[in-house]
């Protein structure tokens, strides 16, 4: 269910840590990178590889808000609405994403192109409001620029 590449990556991770349970978060990242989310089956696979019981894997995977438990759209918009971004108008951006792309927080657009997750502070307060699209940080976005920014993501 995981590709050989992903399996190799997990084995490489195992070589860097002193005990296998410590590899859990990095391994879940490998899964998420490959599949876009962490399915129950993937949790079982990771548990098997690291000798961690599957219920334990689930407990860990669900504790961290960046591990996705559902399939996501092609691109993930992680928009910060914490205080600094809020006072700079982040809430307006949420409205725009809903109106223009049909995106609800934790939802995916009908065409499967974007998913939206509302973030707590992403450490870009000097460029508020800010968002991550996949791994790219976009700061100082506003009602006028957000569409152009997103247009680059097919």
């Amino acid at each position: 269910m995981l590709s050989d590449k992903a399996l190799n990556e997990i084995h490489l991770i195992k070589s860097k840590y002193q005990d296998s349970r410590s590899c859990l978060l990095p391994s879940l990242y490998v899964v998420q990178k490959e599949n876009g989310w962490i399915s129950p089956a993937a949790m079982e696979t990771v548990g098997e590889l690291l000798s961690v019981p599957d219920a334990t894997v689930k407990g860990v995977a669900t504790f961290y808000s960046m591990f996705r438990r559902e399939a996501m759209g092609r691109h993930l918009i992680q928009l910060c609405t914490n205080v600094a971004c809020m006072i700079m108008g982040a809430e307006r951006l949420v409205d725009i994403l809903r109106d223009k792309y049909g995106l609800q927080p934790n939802g995916t657009s009908a065409d499967g192109r974007f998913s939206l997750v509302i973030m707590e502070c992403i450490g870009a307060c000097d460029a508020a409001p800010a968002m991550l699209v996949d791994a790219d940080l976009h700061g100082n976005i506003n009602e006028n620029t957000i569409m152009a920014t997103l247009d680059k993501y097919a």
């Binding site: 019981p53 219920a55 334990t56 689930k58 407990g59 860990v60 669900t62 504790f63």
Partner: peptide, 8 residues
Amino acid sequence: SAISMVNR
């Protein structure tokens, strides 16, 4: 280890 706390 059959059960766990899930979510936070």
